[in-house]
Design a protein around this nucleic acid. Structure first.
Lengths: 209, 209
DNA sequence: CCCGGCATCCAACGACAGTTGGATATCGGC
DNA sequence: GCCGATATCCAACTGTCGTTGGATGCCGGG
């Protein structure tokens, strides 16, 4: 059997260098390319036809999740997400986008190499804390927010008042309050400020850069 | 002149590998050791006597800032902080602890090597965004919060109401509101939710784990 | 010394947030 | 079809938030 061809996508040169060093040392794995942005990653994946793309989620330009879904839907390669954060939002979005696995950067050289080989065989690989969060989610441990509720929550995080949110979404202030109420229930909080902090902590929302 | 001896401290194996690869490729720089925790870093610095310690701030066990101040006060080596975050809080604390420089992980290979050499000569090296923030701070571009205001802000982020905060700090609700008002002015916001998000974005507060 | 600047405290008013209790619509399963 | 579950919408009430306008004490420079 031939060796596994890997494309590295991460915006930190040092991390790229590290991944290259770790993987090149493994027999049966070859790093065929690397880049630091999502747009270039999609392009490179199409041209280099790697078996596995090692993808960071936080990227300049095109987001890691978007790049993942494009590469997966093009069917060119399996995408193995490798990121620092084990927040719910990122995990869900990455898996939904079609990622084959989700590793944390705390991973050891051995775990990393094993995960790349597994991904090349089409197997799903999840880091232990990641798997735990997914199970939690599936069992309904943390109810998910509806689309409308997410919009309202985003507005709240942006510091908008209920009347402002109502004008923005073309609904009455009373309706906004109703959504806010349900958001509180689902997040187990009792005011908007706490809602924002737990949403940030769970990765449901992202801080404005 | 002899070569620069470097100790790498970072809890991510992949990042350590990357730094080692980048620095080892440079002439005149030798990586003499690496570790993934603050306690071990202090010990290794004492035994290996490196010229420069490359230090991540987020470490398990002993914090990167604490490790920095110990190593600097022992006079064993210059400490070059290398981290992902350019938040005000971290920068200030690291510089106060005696760090010789502050680099971001977005740095290129060239910047990294240049910074290590400069640190070995005792020069101060700051990444551009970091320098900007420090200048900003010194010029008063971002007014800093008083002790009391920070306490109140922390309570707000924890989702407490003004009456609750008042009971907690043994002051009247009216006084709490007055502090909240000044926090809004200093952060250029007009409600508590926005205050929390910009405080988080600026690194004034940290998210509860 | 006195003064401006700042941190800390307080009270009363108007606007908004959070609560209660609904109405309507859609969707999947018995 | 009918039913429960869920998403979406709305109105009136109560308490809190944010605003205005002030009082006190501390510190460093003119």
């Amino acid at each position: 059997m031939s060796e596994v061809r890997v494309l590295i996508v991460d915006d930190h040169p040092v991390v790229r260098e590290g991944l290259r060093a770790v993987l090149s040392a493994e027999t049966g794995i070859a790093v065929v390319g690397e880049c630091g942005s999502g747009d270039v990653a999609v392009e490179l994946a199409a041209q280099l036809r790697p078996d596995v793309v090692l993808m960071d989620l936080r990227l300049p330009g095109l987001d890691g999740v978007d790049a993942t879904s494009r590469i997966v839907s093009a069917g060119t390669a399996a995408v193995l997400v490798l990121t620092m954060y084990d927040t719910d939002g990122d995990i869900i979005r990455a898996v939904a986008a079609g990622a084959t696995g989700y590793l944390l950067k705390e991973s050891s050289r051995q775990e990393l190499a094993a995960a790349v080989r597994a991904a090349a065989r089409g197997e799903t690989v999840l880091a232990a804390p990641v798997a735990a969060k997914l199970v939690n989610r599936v069992r309904g441990g943390e109810p998910q927010l509806s689309r409308r509720e997410l919009q309202v929550l985003q507005c709240i995080a942006d510091g908008m008042s209920n009347p402002e949110i109502g004008r923005d979404l073309f609904i009455s202030e009373a309706t906004v309050k109703s959504h806010v109420m349900r958001i509180f229930e689902k997040l187990s909080v009792s005011d908007r400020t706490a809602a924002v902090t737990v949403a940030l902590a769970r990765g449901i929302l992202r801080l404005p850069h």
